[in-house]
Design a protein around this nucleic acid. Sequence first.
DNA 1: ATGAATTACGAGAGGCGTAACTATT
DNA 2: AATAGTTACGCCTCTCGTAATTCAT
Lengths: 296, 296
Amino acid sequence: MLIESYLLEQFEAVARCGTLLKASEDLHISQPSLSRSMKKLEEELGVSLFKRENSKISLNETGKLAADYARRALEANREMVERVWAFDRSLRTVSIGSCSPFPINSLIPVLQEHLPERTLSAELMGSDEKLLAGLRNHLYQMVVLHHCPEDKDLFCQRYLDEQLYISVAKEHPLAKQNSVTFEGLKGLRILMTAHVGFWMDITLEKLGSSDLLIQNSMDALGELIDASNLPFFNSDQMLKAGYQPPDRVALPITDPEAHATYWITCMASEQQKFRSVFSAVRGNMLRNHSLGLTLE
Amino acid sequence: MLIESYLLEQFEAVARCGTLLKASEDLHISQPSLSRSMKKLEEELGVSLFKRENSKISLNETGKLAADYARRALEANREMVERVWAFDRSLRTVSIGSCSPFPINSLIPVLQEHLPERTLSAELMGSDEKLLAGLRNHLYQMVVLHHCPEDKDLFCQRYLDEQLYISVAKEHPLAKQNSVTFEGLKGLRILMTAHVGFWMDITLEKLGSSDLLIQNSMDALGELIDASNLPFFNSDQMLKAGYQPPDRVALPITDPEAHATYWITCMASEQQKFRSVFSAVRGNMLRNHSLGLTLE
DNA sequence: ATGAATTACGAGAGGCGTAACTATT
DNA sequence: AATAGTTACGCCTCTCGTAATTCAT
């Protein structure tokens, strides 16, 4: 014995709205239709649910109980639909999380090429711990970390390295050096954006917040770089991509913390699905490496 | 967005039976109808639920998830129906619990007269504590106790008294006395039934189990009384009702524990519903009392 | 050839809306 | 008069069953 969902939905609306008229407007159906439906519901249950007094209708005790359980049944029905949709969407999208912005930009074209039927979703997330938790939650299918996790149930592959640089005006005293340390940057006012992932932790730890002019948007950063002589953070990867305004020189920061190695990680159980992505990434790595060798 | 219950029911059957044919037999509908329903379910959800390979159909990953949630939604739907039925039935029946069998027999005609639209259900239950717990659980709407509870949320009215007697053969030595004590019964073998409510506790406490020949059925007791000269327990109420075989005399037991006063109790919130029952019981009590006076 | 799913077609049930009616404020 | 619920009638969707079809074992 089951009650059709449309009857439960209509009954719930009547219980919520108090009158058939209001409920019928809420449901966008006619009042007579609702009247008939409620009669049918009572007939199917074989139980009276309403107290009917001349052109006034209200729930009786049984009706109040029924409305309570009807809400739960509707909730379970809606939850099914939502979960199925969410699962289906998760099959068609791949979400990646990264501890740093550059790997996202470089990975997206690779993913688009090798998973053409899937929607991409990428997110920046400061800490490796949160990224790994998100991976286990199925919030992400793939994460880019700056450490290699040891867990057996994870598959991890080295991706690329990034070296932090600082770009200063050619007139700047530091411009004569060919490298610098965080210690040597203290007291300088340095431009950067808030969206740098784990680099934010590194720079805050090494320099302190008073030295950093943190911008919320890339646009604001770009304008300030153009309009001032203030130094800003850069990296070998950004420089390779051609990101160096005129009249600036870039100096590598020699502290070990200014160098990062990125690792692409997914659940070991999903490794097969992303096989082609990993092999493409391996190919890129070899190519970059040999390119580096020939340039030296 | 809701899925009609009949679709969930059919989907659950398919998930359970494995093939459309078996499921259609299980549901007592035709196979093409099921085939169409499953297509419709997929279309309404906008999601593929099955892996279809030439005349073979099976759930895919999304389908397995959906089946899981469908079961829950069906369960919630069925629970609503069950709870509504149970509540409706509870409105149409009144269950009474009693610590002793006699009050049940005497109350039933009163209840039938004053609650003619309700089904009666009566139960014997040894201890007052369990009866009160059942009252608060809505397992009983009315209980007969041998103590008057003091709780504010209960309504309690004195019902009637019962005096325990023992019936012995006229030739029996005790037959010359006009009363007896439990102490005076020790060593005697006395017949009784198991269905005497709290009297079982009293007699076991006062006499010990070795003196009692406890029968499981009323029939067995009656036959043994007829076929032997063994003494058996009786009461003033039973005697009034004419329950005294020939060649026996009944002696009252004078211990205070051999006298009981019964109290009819209901939840104070339900007192109004049973008003006419209580007033009839009060009437009976007064009548019996005055009858007693005139007989003295 | 048999078993299992789908397609095609017609029948019947039932939900819906419009309109008319009743009863209360 | 206006508001709220019920009854009457016709439309139209939708579920079901029968029969025919496809595909594979």
